[in-house]
Simulated scan of single mutants.
Amino acid sequence: MGPFSASKLSGLPHSGRTDASSGSLWLILAIDRSAKAISQAKAASAQEIASGRMSVRHVAAEHFALEPGEAPFDIVFAVRVGALDGRHPEAGRRALDRIAAALAPGGRLFIDGGEPLREIPMPTRH
């Protein structure tokens, strides 16, 4: 996980929750296969985690699944996800299947690849 500009969220739908101090409320779940990256994310985002706006989970994209009772996501950002860069086709297929299963109907997947983010079309789920 690297630095991520909130400006990349501009114009994208959000959870629909709001708070008095900032208006729209983004709820963020960061996942990574690297324990070191998760540790760094926890340290760098302690305030966001304490506020309940962010959580982190140590898991590879191709093994990610919603936890029981966890709502599906409207948007997924994949930042430096090796399984989605084309070098590991089988892991990429598994990651896309897992992401699709975690998206709400109409949910969208964006991959870092410059400015703007690149959107990956997701299959329609019924």
Results as ranks from 00 to 15, higher is better:
A50Q: 13
S34M: 10
K42S: 13
Q40R: 08
W26S: 10
A35P: 03
A35G: 07
A44M: 05
R57L: 03
Q47R: 13
I31T: 14
G52Y: 08
H58D: 07
L29S: 10
I49K: 01
Q40A: 14
L25T: 14
A46T: 12
I49D: 10
S55F: 00
I28G: 02
S45K: 01
A44P: 01
S55M: 08
I31Y: 02
A43Y: 00
G52N: 09
R33E: 11
S55V: 12
I31K: 02
I28Y: 06
S55Y: 00
W26N: 10
R57Y: 01
S34H: 13
I49S: 10
A37K: 08
I38R: 01
K36W: 07
A35R: 03
A46R: 04
I31C: 11
K42G: 14
R57A: 01
A43M: 08
S55P: 00
E48F: 02
S39V: 03
A35V: 11
S55T: 14
A37S: 12
S51H: 05
K36L: 06
S45R: 01
E48S: 11
A43S: 13
L29K: 03
A44G: 07
G52M: 02
K36Q: 12
D32R: 00
I38K: 00
A37I: 10
G52A: 09
K36H: 04
A41G: 04
A37E: 14
S34R: 00
R57H: 02
W26Y: 09
A30V: 12
L29T: 15
S51L: 07
R53M: 09
H58M: 09
L29G: 12
I28M: 05
G52F: 05
S51G: 06
H58G: 02
D32Q: 04
Q40F: 05
A30H: 03
V59I: 12
L29F: 01
A35K: 04
A43P: 01
S39E: 15
Q47A: 15
A46M: 05
A46F: 06
K42N: 15
S55K: 14
A35C: 06
S39A: 15
I31P: 00
Q40H: 07
A50D: 15
V56R: 02
M54H: 01
L27T: 09
V56C: 11
A41F: 04
S39L: 13
A37F: 07
L25P: 01
A50S: 15
L27N: 05
